[in-house]
């Protein structure tokens, strides 16, 4: 890049921070896409109608929380097993 096209130091820092938040946003979105797909398959079993049933709606909300609980549970189990070996 030509010298006169360079950003000054404070602008570079600001841009680096901006890019970091945008990347975090993108990661958040991709996690939400992944979980929507997974929870859709788990919770929406019938033909889609004009609105969600009460049970489908709560299944979708619970699906996210239980998935995260599962991941925490797995980590805890692995740590327990590791400490038994030590």
């Amino acid at each position: 890049m030509a010298d006169n096209m360079k950003f000054d130091e404070s602008t570079q820092k600001e841009l680096a921070k901006f890019v970091e938040t945008e990347q975090a946003q993108a990661r958040l979105h991709s996690t939400i896409h992944m979980m929507t797909g997974m929870c859709w398959d788990k919770c929406v079993t019938g033909t889609p109608s004009t609105r969600f049933s009460r049970s489908e709606e709560s299944c979708l909300a619970n699906c996210v929380d239980r998935f995260l609980d599962t991941s925490l549970f797995m980590v805890k189990k692995i740590e327990e097993q590791r400490s038994q070996l030590a």
Binding site: I32, T36, C39, W40, V44, F52, E57, L60, A61, V64
Partner: peptide
Amino acid sequence: DRYMEAFNIVS
């Protein structure tokens, strides 16, 4: 419509 709604509930 339902998939978009599901996306919103999940997020």
